Simulated scan of single mutants.
Amino acid sequence: MTNSAKPRAQAADKRRRLTAAAAQVLHEQGVERTTLADIAHAADVPVGNVYYYFKTKDELVRAALSEHSTHLGELIGSLDQLPNPRDRLKALIEAWVSRRDTAARYGCPTGTLAVELDKRADGTLDAEAGAVIRRLLDWAGHQFRALGLPDPDDLAVTLVSAYQGMSLLANALRDPDIMTREGARLLHWLDSLKAPGQRP
Rank of each mutant, 00 (worst) to 15 (best):
T124L: 01
G77P: 07
P152M: 03
D126E: 09
A22K: 11
E74G: 04
Q10Y: 08
A195S: 11
Y51R: 13
R174V: 12
A9Q: 15
G107Y: 06
P7G: 04
R86N: 06
A23R: 12
A170Y: 05
V25T: 13
S98P: 00
A43G: 09
P200N: 04
A131I: 07
G183W: 02
H188A: 15
T110S: 12
A5T: 11
A42V: 09
G141K: 03
A40P: 09
L36W: 00
T35G: 14
A162K: 04
A11T: 15
L36R: 15
I178E: 05
G73L: 06
S4W: 11
S161N: 13
M179S: 07
R199W: 06
L113M: 15
R135K: 14
A43L: 08
L169F: 14
A23Q: 07
F144D: 03
D58A: 13
I39E: 07
H27Y: 03
V50A: 06
L187T: 02
S69N: 14
L82F: 03
S69T: 14
L186M: 15
A64W: 04
A129H: 12
V31C: 05
L190I: 13
P109M: 08
C108P: 00
S167R: 05
A40Q: 11
A11H: 03
R17K: 14
V31Q: 01
A63H: 08
P46M: 06
L147D: 02
V61F: 11
D80S: 13
K55I: 00
M179I: 10
R120F: 11
N3F: 02
Q29N: 12
D177V: 09
L186E: 01
L125Y: 04
Q81A: 14
M1L: 13
Q81S: 08
G183M: 04
N3G: 00
R88G: 04
A5G: 12
T110D: 06
R86L: 15
H27I: 00
T56W: 09
A121I: 03
R15K: 15
D175I: 00
P109R: 12
L72N: 06
K119Y: 08
M166N: 04
A43V: 10
Q10P: 01
Y53L: 11
Y53M: 10
A172T: 11
I39D: 05
T56H: 12
T112V: 13
P152N: 02
L72C: 05
L82M: 08
K6R: 14
